[in-house]
Amino acid sequence: TTVVVGNKKYTFDNPEAAEKFAKKVAKKLGATVHKTNGTFKVK
């Protein structure tokens, strides 16, 4: 599962961990999490 934050990509074996990370980053940046085909995008 990939999490994309700006131009950085983070890969997780565990989708739950990926989602948690994405939400944490989004909260910090005041952004939102978008899920597309198993990829979480923070923007």
Rank of each mutant, 00 (worst) to 15 (best):
G30P: 01
V42I: 09
K43V: 15
F21E: 01
D13H: 09
K41G: 07
V42D: 04
L29M: 09
K27Y: 08
K8N: 08
N7R: 13
T1K: 06
K27A: 11
D13V: 11
T39E: 15
V25K: 03
E16P: 05
G6Q: 05
N37D: 13
A17C: 09
P15S: 10
K27V: 08
A22D: 00
G30V: 03
G38R: 05
P15F: 13
T32M: 07
V42Q: 01
K41P: 05
V4K: 06
A22L: 02
K24W: 14
H34K: 08
K8R: 13
K24P: 00
G30I: 03
K28V: 09
T2R: 08
T2N: 11
V33Y: 06
K35L: 14
K9A: 10
G30A: 04
N14H: 08
N14E: 08
K43I: 15
F40Q: 05
N7I: 10
E16V: 12
E16Y: 10
K20P: 01
E16K: 12
F21S: 01
K9F: 11
K43Q: 14
T11S: 09
K41Q: 15
T11M: 14
N14T: 10
K35Y: 15
A17I: 12
A17E: 10
K20M: 13
T39Y: 15
D13A: 12
T36F: 11
K27I: 09
G6N: 06
K24G: 08
F12R: 00
F40V: 12
V42R: 00
Y10Q: 02
K28Q: 12
T39P: 03
H34V: 15
T2I: 14
A17M: 12
G30S: 06
K8G: 05
D13S: 12
N37E: 13
K43R: 10
V3F: 00
V25N: 02
G6V: 05
F12T: 00
D13M: 11
A26Q: 02
E16F: 11
N7D: 07
T1Y: 13
A17L: 13
T1S: 10
K27F: 07
V25L: 09
K28W: 09
K43L: 15
T32P: 04
Y10P: 00
G38T: 04
T1N: 09
E16N: 09
Y10I: 05
K23R: 11
V25D: 00
V5K: 01
H34L: 13
H34M: 11
A18K: 00
T1W: 15
T2K: 09
T11W: 14
A31H: 08
K23G: 07
F21I: 02
V33Q: 02
K28F: 12
H34N: 06
H34Q: 14
V33N: 01
A17W: 08
K9Y: 12
K28C: 11
N7H: 11
P15H: 09
H34I: 15
F12V: 01
K27S: 08
K28Y: 11
F21N: 00
T1P: 08
T11C: 14
F40H: 07
K41L: 15
A18L: 01
D13L: 10
G30H: 07
D13Y: 09
V3R: 00
A26I: 02
P15Y: 14
K35V: 13
F21H: 02
V5Y: 04
V42F: 03
K41H: 15
A31R: 04
Y10K: 03
K8Q: 09
Y10S: 02
K35M: 10
K35N: 10
V42T: 03
A26D: 01
V33T: 03
K27L: 10
V5A: 03
P15A: 12
T39D: 15
V3N: 00
V3L: 02
V4N: 06
N14G: 07
Y10G: 01
K43S: 14
F21Q: 01
N14Y: 07
T32K: 09
N14A: 07
E16D: 12
A22Q: 00
A17P: 04
T36K: 07
A31D: 03
T11H: 13
E19W: 13
V4P: 00
Y10N: 02
F40N: 05
F40R: 05
N14L: 08
V5H: 03
K24H: 12
K43H: 12
H34W: 06
A18T: 01
N37M: 04
F12G: 00
P15D: 08
T39W: 10
K23F: 14
T36W: 07
K28R: 12
V5E: 01
H34F: 09
E16L: 12
K28L: 14
G6F: 14
K41F: 15
A18Y: 01
K8W: 12
T36I: 15
T32A: 07
V4E: 14
T32R: 07
A31E: 04
F12W: 03
N37W: 03
T36E: 15
E19Y: 13
K23S: 08
K8C: 15
E19N: 05
V5P: 00
K20Q: 11
T11D: 08
N14Q: 07
T11P: 07
A26V: 02
A17Y: 11
N37V: 03
K8Y: 11
Y10H: 04
K20A: 13
K27D: 09
K35A: 07
K43D: 13
T39Q: 15
N14M: 07
T2E: 08
V4T: 08
V4F: 13
K8D: 05
N14D: 12
K23N: 15
K43Y: 15
V4Q: 10
A18W: 01
K20L: 10
G30F: 04
G38D: 07
T36Q: 13
K9G: 06
A31I: 05
A22K: 01
T39H: 15
K20H: 11
T39V: 14
A18R: 00
K35F: 15
A26C: 02
K35R: 09
K23P: 00
E19P: 02
K20N: 12
V5Q: 01
A22R: 01
P15V: 11
K43E: 15
V5T: 03
K23D: 11
N7W: 11
K20E: 11
K27E: 10
V33D: 01
K41S: 13
N37A: 06
G6K: 05
G38L: 04
A26Y: 01
G30T: 03
K9I: 12
G30L: 03
K28D: 07
V25F: 04
V3A: 02
P15W: 08
A22V: 04
V25W: 09
A31N: 03
T2L: 15
K20F: 09
K43T: 15
N7Q: 11
N7L: 10
K43P: 06
T2W: 11
V25P: 00
G38S: 05
K24R: 13
G38Y: 04
K9E: 09
A31M: 14
F21Y: 07
F40P: 04
F12D: 00
E19C: 09
A17H: 09
T11I: 14
A26L: 01
E19R: 06
K8M: 12
K24I: 13
T39M: 15
T39K: 08
F12N: 00
V3P: 00
K23Y: 15
T1G: 11
A18P: 00
F12A: 00
A17Q: 12
A26N: 00
V33P: 02
V5F: 05
A17K: 12
K35H: 09
L29E: 03
Y10E: 00
L29C: 05
D13I: 11
L29K: 03
K35Q: 09
V5L: 06
P15M: 12
K20V: 09
N14F: 07
A17G: 06
F21C: 04
V25G: 01
N37I: 04
T39I: 15
E19G: 05
V33I: 08
N37T: 04
G38I: 03
A26G: 04
V25R: 03
N7A: 10
V4L: 13
K41A: 14
K41D: 15
T2V: 13
F40M: 13
G6D: 04
T1F: 13
T36S: 11
L29I: 14
N14S: 11
K43G: 14
F12P: 00
G38K: 06
V42M: 03
V5G: 00
L29S: 04
Y10M: 04
K8V: 08
K24L: 11
K24M: 14
F40A: 05
K28E: 10
N37L: 05
V33S: 02
V5R: 01
V3M: 02
T11N: 10
V42N: 02
K20C: 12
V25I: 13
T2S: 10
G6P: 01
K23V: 13
T32F: 06
N14K: 08
E19K: 06
V42P: 04
F21W: 12
F21T: 02
A22C: 02
T36N: 07
V5I: 12
N37G: 12
L29N: 03
E16S: 11
F12S: 00
F40Y: 09
E16A: 11
K23H: 14
N7P: 07
H34D: 10
A26H: 01
H34E: 15
T1R: 06
P15N: 08
F21V: 03
N7V: 10
A17V: 11
T32L: 06
V4G: 03
L29G: 03
